[in-house]
Design a protein around this nucleic acid. Structure first.
Length: 573
DNA sequence: GCCGTTTTCGGCCCGACTGTTTTCAGTCG
């Protein structure tokens, strides 16, 4: 039975193949929209298909045709149309579409005219100068393709938001010092707080564009200038990241900020809406005919379209327009709402700071409580705690709590879920803890049924409070384990347990989409730093960004509440 | 291929930059 992700993947493949064949671009878009709609769904398509009272067509972007294709995929496990398309175009050809500078038209020409079916073929043809002889191609194009191929070979994956943030701050500093700069902002997926960032986008209003562009050109990390026009400039940094700079007039700054913040899908909806209202929206403003109606601020732009201002994190064309229509745009969680941190380590296991240092640092950050959750014994590499050592630490915590005023340290443990199922510490030990996070660290490659059963088993243990990093993914490094999240959500709801949004920028687990799905199931989320040092306590902000992207409010998050209220929400029994 | 209080047919977002062009197509965001 295919998962939603597999069905989305099938639709994306169809879109690629159709695009390559030069199909109607709107038809291609319909498949891409369908793929997106499916991947954002919080319940499995199979369960909708199985329910005679439900219709796939109630999903926005799914019509008669895609509904039938989903049903075919769910019931037979394959899709004749996709198989047929795959037979018409060699699979490796699709890689051509991923080369910078190559779109469907040029890729198709290379395939048809030169018989190129792989990146290796393409490189060879460029080196033999066969490409520049094609109509519509030239010497420059050939060079661009070779550069694109070289980049694809060495390119880093998308940059972690936290790492991009360092570059953004440095570039803002650099540009700020150019003469004549008035307003300056970073836009793009960075501003939307996406877990990873592709390009960096900067907007500036300035009396004169030249000095600003010169400043960017001389930024230390720049390796090549990709393009430089009157108002737009693109450079590549040595780490491979592309940086785009736009110089815009002050009366258009808000429109440009809106436009370049995106997302693309959010903007498509906006411009369609403008059209419906007899207006036109572009990066210069909202226009009625030739007349500029709005553009100086983002608020003006949205107001002109009869919409509220959307926090950038929500601008993904997921739920925000529905919420706005219903007048139910959520008031998103803020970092200052969080009063506790319920997952961290000390030198008792693999942390770098002592219990005392973590307590002091947490108090200095203004927190009201923390849970100290060192590893359990299965994690031998981290010197995990057995029952005796856990109790020793908890006794020490008791002594701290006797001294502390207005601050509480909870006796916690990050207890491993063993490979064969069951918890790493006995129930009588776990029963003495205030807070137990259960984690999978071993046996991550087990099949879906087994790993899901282990996690559900932990949720059914009365002493467990929450599941930590529920999918185990490490962004750009390790795939999530093959866990049936829908089943985990159902069990967490039934057992009144919490799920973690781990704020470590490599984890961000649950991710934004899964977090929104968990919320839809009515499961309270706990955002935790999983700190292994004092400095790590500041990573909470990365978790908050993802929670905001998931549409979470203060009320949806466990550790916005005083500890006494947390227990009434669920968790440990 | 989707969608609809203007529509069941005819729309479907918009502009900058580049290169190969002699007026524009392709790509990108």
């Amino acid at each position: 039975m295919p998962t939603n992700a597999e069905i989305a993947d099938a639709f994306d493949q169809i879109a690629d193949l159709l695009e390559f064949q030069g199909a109607n671009p709107f038809r291609v878009r319909a498949y891409r929209n369908g793929a997106r709609a499916v991947s954002l769904l919080s319940e499995s398509l199979a369960s909708i298909v199985a329910d005679p009272d439900r219709s796939l067509k109630s999903i926005e972007g799914i019509g008669d045709d895609l509904a039938a294709k989903i049903t075919t995929l769910v019931t037979t496990g394959s899709l004749p149309m996709l198989v047929e398309l795959q037979a018409q175009v060699p699979h490796s050809v699709l890689a051509l579409l991923r080369v910078a500078g190559l779109g469907p038209k040029k890729a198709a020409a290379l395939y048809k005219e030169l018989g190129i079916t792989s990146l290796d073929d393409l490189k060879k043809a460029c080196e033999e100068h066969k490409v520049q002889a094609l109509k519509g191609f030239g010497k420059k194009t050939e060079e661009t393709i070779l550069a694109g191929l070289a980049l694809a070979a060495t390119a880093e994956a998308r940059t972690l938001w936290a790492e991009a943030d360092d570059f953004v701050q440095a570039i803002l500093e650099q540009l700020k010092s150019a003469s004549g700069v008035e307003r300056l902002a970073a836009a793009g997926s960075y501003r939307r707080g996406k877990e990873t960032v592709g390009d960096l986008d900067f907007l500036v209003t300035a009396a004169d564009a030249e000095p600003v562009m010169d400043r960017l050109e001389h930024f230390g990390a720049v390796s090549t200038i990709l393009a430089r026009g009157d108002t737009k400039m693109s450079v590549r940094l040595r780490n491979g990241m592309q940086v785009d700079l736009r110089v815009v007039p002050a009366e258009s700054f808000g429109a440009a900020l809106q436009y370049f913040t995106g997302s693309k899908e959010h903007n498509v909806v906006l411009r369609g809406r403008a059209k419906d209202l007899g207006l036109k929206l572009n990066e210069y403003g909202v226009f009625r005919g030739e007349e500029l109606v709005a553009g100086r601020t983002e608020e003006d732009v949205y107001r002109a379209l009869d919409l509220p201002w959307f926090p950038p994190e929500l601008r993904e064309a997921r739920q925000e327009f529905n919420w706005a229509a219903a007048g139910e745009l959520p008031k998103l969680l803020e970092l200052a709402d969080l009063v506790g941190d319920l997952h961290m380590h000390t030198t008792a296991t693999d942390g770098q700071a002592s219990l005392e240092e973590m307590i002091e640092a947490a108090q200095a950050r203004g927190l009201k409580y923390i849970a100290v959750t060192d590893h359990s014994k299965r994690v031998s590499m981290a010197n995990g705690l057995d029952g005796a050592r856990a109790r020793e630490q908890w006794d020490e915590i008791d002594r701290w709590n006797a001294k502390l005023k207005g601050f509480r340290v909870l006796k916690g443990i990050e207890c491993d879920i063993l490979e064969k199922g069951g918890m790493d510490l006995p129930d009588d030990v776990l029963a003495e803890a205030d807070w137990v996070v259960a984690s999978v660290h071993y046996g991550q490659n087990q099949p879906r049924e087994q790993i899901t059963a282990r996690i559900i088993g932990a949720l059914e243990n009365p002493h467990v409070s929450a599941i930590a990093h529920p999918t185990g993914r490490l962004i750009n490094r390790r795939k999530p384990y093959d866990v049936d999240l829908e089943a985990v959500f159902t069990a967490a709801k039934r057992e009144r347990k919490f799920l973690e949004l781990n704020a470590n920028p490599w984890r961000l687990d649950l991710d934004d989409v899964a977090c929104a799905a968990a919320k839809a199931h009515g499961i309270p989320i706990v955002i935790s730093t999983d700190a292994h040092s004092i400095a790590d306590l500041s990573k909470m902000r990365y978790g908050v960004l993802q929670a905001r992207r998931a549409g979470l409010t203060k009320a949806d998050v466990v550790n916005t509440r005083p500890w006494d209220e947390v227990k009434s929400l669920g968790g440990k029994r």
